[in-house]
Design a protein around this nucleic acid. Structure first.
Length: 910
DNA sequence: TCGTCTCACACATTTGAAGAGC
DNA sequence: AGCTCTTCAAATGTGTGAGACG
């Protein structure tokens, strides 16, 4: 799927990369879809189970470690909150990771996307996060392309990879290319590593990694004072708010007082107009401030605010013996190093070390006590200790499938180290559970404060990598609902979603996600679930509007995320300190393992656990490597749909289509079988839309389903004769996307938007005329897959065309909010109009700089900039892919902006 | 009334340009 | 002329609190 077309910037060179944003039009969910999404259980989203990996693939060894895992864990323990603003806000902690196992000589592109964990909306009440309703319509999926992309494996492996440039916004009309998220929703960042051997050959191998501890809830203002404290103490930019900072509470209050007093004085002066009076007043005014200060000083410590004395300044902290509530000590110490730079590896290490230590501290009861453990409704949840170490996971591991996994949880709970965190079994996760039974669940259990992160997620290291296996590609069609994997789904249950949800139980067989309530013990046992279930969910879905089946909801997709963490899969490193390694998505086999839902987050993530489902995945629990890597799993990838969906198999299916992880992918052919296996796995998997989608969407589904599947797999018409186009193969599994399935955005819109809005500047070279209308017929455009990435990919695929027609997909970019299926636009405009037909554009100047680019942390480029990659916009005359180019535009950007964003959504950005 | 969001604010950090020195 | 280093200003990032909005 990925190709130059998709990421033209890549071809162009580093600068371009940084500057360019790609917007794929992925239509927002159709309203119907949204609704459906809500209904869907999180599980649906599970990652595709890994199928057997191709043993030989190098990819197998690909590992990703979250460098600042300890910091993330600290936040997750409390319940990570990320500010989203209209103007865009960076994430903190930053996503910093290290990659290993890449072929040094091959080029890869790294993508970041953020998936909804569930279909719930949260509210911070009683010092905890509780589900208060269904998630809002899914927003257009956007992908942030690491500015260094594409870069060689050597490049990526020799430095810390940071996505700090990525920004989050709640502005649905964002034109900056930032990642659009809803406030008060829970998300899971996911990183994709896509092999780009050649411009034309992208996506041959795809790995997706997710780290449970990086889950967060978006907010427009911090809700939990603990998070505020952590942020202030950890983020260099917030240094001013530290106790010793000039902008700390004391100082601010003092200033305020002074201000007030001065104002008063002025007023007095004005009123009195008596100089004498004013002079007299001065003293008072002066005093006031001082007094205020004194008061403040005394008071501050007491206050909850982060500024307490408790929070030592960095210096203090290091010195202070006081136990930090949240492990502040650690943070403080860490902060400096971290922040300052972007991090040299060494620094990172140091930081990590520190962090780890902090993490441990956090684990301490002390902390936990502070933090309200999520109360489960009834029962208790075993508190889950934070798993600092991967080890926790290990415990979980393998269970089987479906798991219920609850058992797993048990293990988790036990971990001594862990702070008392109640971890909900993944299944428990409110959002996830769709089951009707859950209703209660929907209401978040009072106790559950933060919905715990799904266990698997918790693993710090977890990750799912999807290896694109051949199968996956072909098989997976994200949307294909019917796919075998999902077949299991009872009609009653959200049919559309491929997920099988046990209506009664709400379980979704679907892969790992599963969580049918029934199945999973946790689920069964309400108490266990720490997380409030999202109201939305399925059957019970309160939302009248949402069609039952449709429920597919994005949310479902969103949920998926968790799977990855499948404890089983994840090796739990014995050493807590060890940075979690992200593993590639577990092979299908894992599925079993994955699901260990129970395991709550080792981390103790406050978040309600995502369901993992995993049943499918489960399978492979066994081997869960220790935290580290799971190469193998990848191979199986298919299962992984979610995750990255299917990655194109290395092998490249003849078709070349890149299947998106989306469920669709799964469905496809071979996949079916796979799917079965996969489903369970899903840890993370890309949610399969298919199921849901198809069913729900009336029209589209029919064909669409197939089509969709195709989507995912849309082949790229690559020049390469042999196989499917690599690019095609790339599927980003946006879990969500899948759901969304979106309709393909209207090409017209897209075109117009892009071309017009972002005309050439970025791509001057491309001759407008070139645009080949034919290529991109609206028709040709398949409905966009749910997953953004996938969508993107799909879009690129020339093959896709058929899909385009899909009525089902609500496409239109317009849709952005939700597009009615009918609305789905054609891309006709694009085709003809497309300004960018260009065949190839070479940007010699740019090329060189690739590596050097961006990331501050990153060292100079190690390799020559893709000499071979000439900028070829439309390599394949046949391809319909031109579209992508159009999407690309140079972000308005601010100077520093680096990194590229892909907007998967169909909406035009402006 | 409550919850949520937006905005302006002050401070800290980062970045890049300009200048000086070699 | 070219390079390196330092300085400075601007841009950017950050949390806070007041106010607006529904």
């Amino acid at each position: 799927m990925l190709g130059v077309e998709m990421y033209p910037s890549l071809a162009l060179g580093p600068q371009r990369l940084s500057d360019c944003y790609y917007r794929a039009h992925v239509p927002l969910y159709p309203t119907t879809c949204d609704m459906a999404a809500r209904g869907l259980p999180p599980r649906l989203l599970q990652p595709p189970p890994a199928t057997a990996e191709t043993p030989g693939t190098p990819q197998d060894s690909v590992k990703m470690e979250l460098e600042n895992a300890s910091l993330w864990k600290q936040f997750s323990t409390v319940g990570t909150e990320m500010i989203v603003t209209k103007k865009g806000r960076r994430m903190f902690p930053q996503l910093r990771m290290k990659l290993s196992g890449l072929n040094p000589s091959l080029r890869y592109i790294l993508l970041l996307d953020i998936l909804p964990v569930d279909s719930s909306r949260y509210r911070f009440q009683d010092n905890s996060w509780q589900v208060v309703g269904g998630a809002e319509a899914r927003l257009p999926d956007r992908v942030f392309i690491h500015p260094d992309s594409p870069a060689t494996g050597e490049h990526w492996q020799n430095r810390t990879i940071s996505f700090h440039r990525a920004k989050l916004t709640n502005n649905t009309l964002d034109a900056q290319g930032y990642i659009i998220l809803h406030s008060l929703h829970r998300y899971q960042p996911r990183v994709h590593v896509i092999e780009a051997r050649d411009v034309l050959m992208w996506g041959r191998a795809q790995h997706s990694f997710t780290f449970p501890e990086t889950q967060f809830i978006t907010v427009t203002a911090y809700q939990n004072s603990k998070i505020t404290e952590l942020k202030i103490n950890s983020n260099p930019f917030a240094k001013g708010f530290r106790e010793n900072g000039m902008n700390c509470k004391k100082q601010r209050e003092a200033r305020l007082k002074r201000k007030i007093t001065s104002n008063q004085e002025e007023c007095l002066d004005i009123e009195s107009c008596d100089p004498c009076d004013s002079t007299e007043l001065l003293p008072q005014s002066v005093e006031i401030p001082s007094s205020a200060l004194s008061i403040i000083n005394t008071a501050l410590p007491i206050t909850d605010s982060g500024f307490h004395t408790e929070v030592p300044s960095l210096l203090d902290q290091t010195v202070s013996d006081q136990p930090l509530v949240l492990g502040q000590e650690f943070l403080t110490s860490e902060i400096p190093s971290m922040e300052n730079q972007q991090q040299t590896a060494s620094e990172n290490n140091v930081n990590n070390t520190l962090m780890d230590g902090s993490g441990q501290m956090m684990g301490l009861s002390g902390y936990t006590s502070t933090f309200p453990t999520p109360q489960l409704s009834s029962s208790s949840h075993a508190s889950v200790p934070l798993p600092q170490s991967s080890s926790i996971y290990s415990m979980v591991s393998s269970t089987q499938n479906s798991g219920l996994q609850l058992p797993q949880s048990s293990p988790i709970s036990s971990p001594p180290s862990m702070s008392t965190y109640s971890s909900m079994p993944s299944s428990d996760h409110p959002g996830l559970n769709t089951s009707t039974t859950m209703p209660s669940s929907t209401t978040s259990p009072p106790g559950s404060s933060y919905p715990p992160i799904s266990p698997h997620l918790l693993h710090s290291s977890s990750y799912h990598s999807f290896l694109p296996t051949d199968q996956s590609q072909d098989n997976l069609s994200p949307h294909t609902p019917t796919n075998p994997p999902f077949q299991s789904i009872p009609p009653s249950s959200c049919q559309g979603s491929g997920l099988t949800i046990d209506p009664g139980q709400n379980q979704v067989d679907y892969g790992g996600l599963s969580s049918s309530n029934a199945t999973t013990p946790a689920v069964q046992n309400p108490t266990q679930t720490a997380f409030p279930f999202p109201p939305v969910q399925s059957s019970n879905d309160p939302d009248p509007t949402s069609p039952p089946c449709q429920s597919l909801p994005q949310s479902a997709l969103a949920f998926q995320p968790v799977p990855q963490c499948n404890p089983n899969q994840i090796p739990t490193p014995s050493d807590p300190n060890t940075t979690p390694t992200a593993f590639p998505f577990p092979p299908a086999a894992h599925s079993n393992s994955i699901m260990t839902p129970s395991n709550p987050n080792p981390m103790g993530f406050p978040f309600p656990p995502v369901q993992q489902n995993h049943s499918h995945n489960l399978g492979t629990p066994g081997p869960t490597p220790p935290t580290d890597s799971f190469p193998a799993s990848q191979s199986t990838s298919i299962s992984g749909l979610r995750t990255i969906p299917e990655i194109p198999n290395p092998i490249y299916p003849t078709t070349g289509s890149f299947s998106l992880p989306s469920t669709n992918v799964i469905h496809q052919g071979p996949m079916q079988s796979v799917s079965n296996t996969l489903q369970p796995t899903t840890a993370y998997g890309v949610p399969s839309f298919p199921a849901s989608l198809p069913k729900h969407t009336p029209g589209p589904l029919q064909n669409p389903a197939p089509i969709l599947t195709s989507h995912t797999s849309y082949p790229f018409p690559t020049p390469i004769p042999s196989g499917p186009h690599p690019l095609q193969c790339l599927t980003l599994p946006s879990s969500s996307s899948i759901h969304s399935v979106p309709a393909i955005p209207n090409t017209t819109q897209i075109q117009s938007t892009f071309s017009q809005s972002y005309p050439n500047p970025s791509f001057p070279h491309i001759p407008p005329q070139t645009a080949n209308p034919c290529q991109i017929t609206s028709q040709s455009f398949p409905p966009i897959q749910t997953s953004s990435t996938s969508q993107l990919l799909s879009q690129f695929n020339p093959l896709v065309p058929q899909a385009s027609t899909h009525p089902q997909c609500p496409s239109s970019s317009n849709a952005y909010p939700a597009v009615a299926p009918t609305e789905i636009g054609t891309f006709s405009q694009l085709s003809s109009a497309a300004p960018y037909l260009p065949d190839m554009v070479l940007h010699p100047s740019l090329l060189p700089s690739l590596d050097s680019s961006l990331s501050s942390s990153s060292p100079p480029s190690l390799y020559n900039p893709f000499p071979s990659y000439s900028l070829r916009l439309c390599q394949d005359p046949r391809s319909t892919l031109h579209l992508p180019l159009r999407h690309i535009y140079r972000p308005p950007q601010h100077a520093h902006g680096q990194g590229s964003y892909f907007d998967l959504s169909g909406r035009a950005v402006f």
